[in-house]
């Protein structure tokens, strides 16, 4: 059992849980994730480790309540327990000093981006961070990412905060100027966003790292459910990733495989609503 110390709402349906998991806190590196199971009988789901405090023995998990399982998790209040937290899993981010880098986060991906930005900053990079969201309330971690970045740029689909439009519009502008053009790009967010970023940097051959979020069960390479196509080769995101060269990832396959259980997921959510279950609803 893993104790939840705090449960904070960062954005609509996006929670930050601080969980006591001393071994994970000690072992984790930027880019790694944990597999979490809210309670006996629940699904195993992968969650990126947003941050860790080795002294306190805690990890921060950012959870977007989109399905029945994630809603159950975000309903666990401070003082409550998560049944299982296993990790850290996956390979750590390869951190080096590229010089000037652009880090792009979309939606909950911004939380996944946070440890990367922290690591890249520690490695001495000059960072421009771009955070995108549907509208102002969905733009998260501005303060934290701003503190680590030379420039912080915000975009919203509806223009309620920062530049109106997509993160790629801002990236395009950065790339158009040799003074601001990044030497490497890190993008974490919805598949279509990462795909758009990778397409934009492809021609100029700017190294572009993306963090993938396929369906997983064990997270240890055992099941192969998280397989992705990277440069024509089958890779398991849980042991070979979750970060890959964005120019080699088959994003269409990723999107497609993510849709495998959409009918079941919808039914699970309907059940949840039918039971008047309001968990995760803020």
């Amino acid at each position: 059992m893993f104790k939840v110390l705090s449960n904070e709402i960062l954005a609509p349906e996006l929670h930050k849980l601080v969980v006591v998991a001393p071994r994970v806190a000690k072992a984790r590196k930027a880019g790694q994730f944990v597999i979490v199971r809210a309670d006996v009988g629940d699904e195993r789901i992968p969650l990126t480790i947003g941050d860790a405090d080795v002294e306190a023995g805690t990890v921060s998990l950012f959870i977007q309540a989109i399905g029945a399982s994630t809603r159950k998790l975000v309903a666990i209040q401070a003082g409550g327990f998560i049944r299982d937290v296993a990790g850290p899993l996956g390979l750590a981010t390869h951190l080096e000093n590229y010089g000037r880098v652009a880090c792009i986060g979309g939606g909950v991906g911004t939380a996944v981006l946070y440890p990367l930005v922290k690591g890249l900053a520690q490695a001495g990079n000059e960072i421009t961070t771009i955070i995108g969201g549907r509208s102002a309330p969905y733009v998260i971690l501005q303060k934290e990412l701003g503190a680590l970045s030379k420039n912080l740029l915000l975009t919203t689909d509806d223009g309620s905060l920062g530049v109106k439009g997509f993160v790629t519009n801002v990236l395009k502008e950065l790339m158009s100027n040799p003074e601001t053009c990044p030497k490497a790009v890190f993008a974490v967010g919805p598949g279509p966003m990462m795909k758009a970023v990778a397409e934009m940097t492809r021609a100029d051959k700017i190294p572009t790292i993306v963090s993938l979020n396929p369906i997983m069960i064990d997270g240890t390479g055992m099941c192969g459910g998280c397989r992705v196509d990277v440069g024509g080769e089958v890779k398991f995101a849980c042991v070979d990733g979750p970060e890959f060269d964005g120019h080699l990832v088959d994003f269409d396959l990723l999107r497609d495989r993510l849709s495998t259980y959409k009918d079941q997921e919808r039914r699970a959510l309907d059940r949840c609503s039918a039971d008047k279950c309001k968990i995760g609803r803020s």
């Binding site: 009988g41 699904e43 069960i217 055992m222 459910g225 495989r257 079941q264 699970a268």
Partner: peptide, 30 residues
């Protein structure tokens, strides 16, 4: 091999045996 509906034995069995998919009504693991 990457089409939807193609499983490794490990994934198929883990879903059913470890996670209870399909064995209990409304199993959380699909």
């Amino acid at each position: 091999e990457n089409l939807k509906g193609v499983y490794s034995a490990n994934e198929f069995l883990t879903r059913v045996n470890l996670m209870g998919a399909g064995q209990v009504a409304d199993s959380t693991t699909p």
